[in-house]
């Protein structure tokens, strides 16, 4: 009798319309991948704007990219790679029922994401101080090109939408830390942590493309 209750408790995550935990896990993960497809295509629109604009004004991109700090961009790339590693280690820890260390790895991921946003804040405020705003607010005259404002509109839209995703990711990972602390996730059920990890890795992948495309135009 006691055994049955323990067994039922362990399977409490299993919803009635799934055959078993594995099917539920696979379905949920496929759903997450389909959501990631919509994310790729949303950022895709911005990448298309970038490609068309660069094909029209290659000289503008050479001049304007000099305003971006390669060292800060590279630091942020390293920070995001480290955060991808820590979230992957967190998932490994949950799979092995090491909930304490999973919580620590997720906290490290949130801290690294925060570091990324702080560096981004310094980059943005440095540009705002020079009068580099998106669109009509652009007042900087250090770039000798008529279309200089448009490069920065593309820059702010791409890095801004990415930054919003970093903040959302921090929120999701914090939520997962709370779930883990309450004992809702374990080796038998870690779907939310897995899907949050997938989201976080996609944010990393998008930055992997943004960094060379915006900062490394020599």
């Amino acid at each position: 009798m006691g055994n049955q209750i323990a067994e039922a408790d362990k399977k409490s995550h299993l919803q009635h319309h799934f055959v078993d935990s594995d099917q539920q896990f696979e379905s949920s993960k496929l759903g997450m991948w389909i959501f990631l497809v919509t994310e790729v295509l949303m950022f895709g629109g911005l990448f298309v704007a970038y490609i068309i604009y660069r094909s029209w004004h290659p000289d503008l991109f050479y001049l304007a990219a000099k305003e971006l700090d390669t060292a800060l961009g590279a630091t942020n790339t390293v920070v995001l790679i480290a955060s991808s590693l820590t979230i992957a280690l967190a998932i490994r820890a949950v799979q092995l029922d090491k909930i304490r260390s999973a919580i620590n790895y997720m906290a490290a991921t949130v801290a690294l994401a925060g570091t990324f946003m702080v560096i981004k804040y310094f980059e943005y405020t440095d540009k705002f101080a020079k009068g580099i705003f998106p669109g009509a607010g652009y007042t900087y005259d250090g770039i000798d090109h008529d279309m200089a404002a448009n490069f920065f509109s593309i820059y702010y839209m791409m890095t801004g939408l990415h930054g919003i995703h970093v903040v959302i990711g921090m929120g999701l990972i914090t939520w997962m830390i709370i779930k883990a602390k309450k004992g809702f996730v374990h080796s038998g059920y870690y779907t939310p942590v897995e899907n949050t990890g997938l989201f976080w890795h996609l944010v990393d992948i998008i930055w992997i493309f943004l960094f060379p495309l915006l900062y490394l135009i020599d």
Partner: peptide, 21 residues
């Protein structure tokens, strides 16, 4: 199947870029 879903996203992005260009 998950890989196919992801690669299809990239394929559709390439179509998006090509036709616009």
């Amino acid at each position: 199947f998950n890989s196919i879903v992801f690669l299809l996203a990239i394929l559709f992005f390439v179509i998006f870029v090509s036709i616009t260009l």
